[in-house]
Simulated scan of single mutants.
Amino acid sequence: MSTQIHRLTITELASCDDCVVLRVTGELDQTGEALFLGTLGACVDAGHRHLVLDTTALSFCDSRGLNCLLAMRWLLERRDGRLLLAGAGRRLTDLLAQTGSAHLLPSHRTVGHALAELPQAQRPVWPPLQD
């Protein structure tokens, strides 16, 4: 699954019953807000309690994007799940630090490190198997 609108692309990299790993590429701002919330909301509706976002290719995130991340964190926590970030670049890391959100949305160096935060039975195979 890959969805793109304007300057934002969200691609599923791996999944299992409890967790999905998504690559978020481009710009997370007002133009991508509906796509971001709709795509991640559909993952939660499908039963995934944990979302891991690979943000290595996220080139821009403003306050609207941060609000999207915090909204998904809130939703997942109410379902006994977690939102985990992986590979945050300097800009996203700075935004999280400047807004006091770094403790709410901790970033892990890699997707593998983020997945290690979850119980083994709730993690998809990583790295994904090639077809």
Score class of each variant (00 low, 15 high):
T25D: 15
T39V: 13
C43Y: 12
L13W: 03
T11L: 06
D62I: 11
D17C: 09
H50L: 04
I10L: 15
T11S: 14
G41V: 03
A14P: 09
V20H: 06
E27Y: 12
S15E: 14
R23N: 10
D18V: 00
T11G: 05
D45M: 05
S63R: 09
L35E: 06
A14Y: 06
R64M: 11
D18R: 13
D54W: 04
R73I: 03
A34H: 10
A71I: 02
G41L: 03
R7C: 00
T9Q: 13
R73F: 06
L69N: 02
H50A: 04
L28T: 11
A42Q: 11
H6S: 10
G26E: 00
T39W: 06
H48E: 07
L22I: 11
T31K: 14
H50N: 15
L51Y: 04
C19L: 12
I5Q: 14
V20C: 14
I5L: 12
N67H: 11
R49H: 13
M72A: 02
D54A: 08
S63N: 10
T55E: 07
R64F: 05
G38W: 08
V24M: 12
V52I: 09
R23W: 01
N67I: 00
C16W: 09
R7Y: 00
C43E: 10
E12D: 14
T9I: 00
A57G: 03
H50V: 00
G65L: 03
A42K: 10
T55P: 01
V52R: 07
L51T: 01
R7H: 11
G26A: 08
C68D: 13
L69P: 01
A14E: 02
L37G: 08
L13E: 09
A42V: 00
V52S: 07
G32E: 00
A14I: 08
L28A: 06
A71K: 05
V44I: 15
A14L: 09
A46H: 09
D62V: 09
T11P: 07
G32W: 01
S15V: 08
M72I: 13
D54E: 10
I5Y: 02
D62W: 11
L70R: 03
L40C: 09
L37E: 14
G26T: 08
S59N: 05
C68Y: 07
L70F: 07
E33P: 03
L22T: 02
A42G: 12
D45I: 02
T11W: 04
L66N: 05
C61N: 07
L35W: 01
T31I: 02
L58Y: 07
S15Q: 15
R7L: 01
R23I: 01
C61L: 05
L35D: 00
G47M: 13
N67P: 01
R64Y: 07
I10C: 15
E27W: 12
V52C: 11
C68I: 05
R73E: 10
F60R: 04
G65N: 07
L40E: 03
A57H: 11
T31W: 05
R7Q: 05
V20F: 08
A34W: 01
D18P: 02
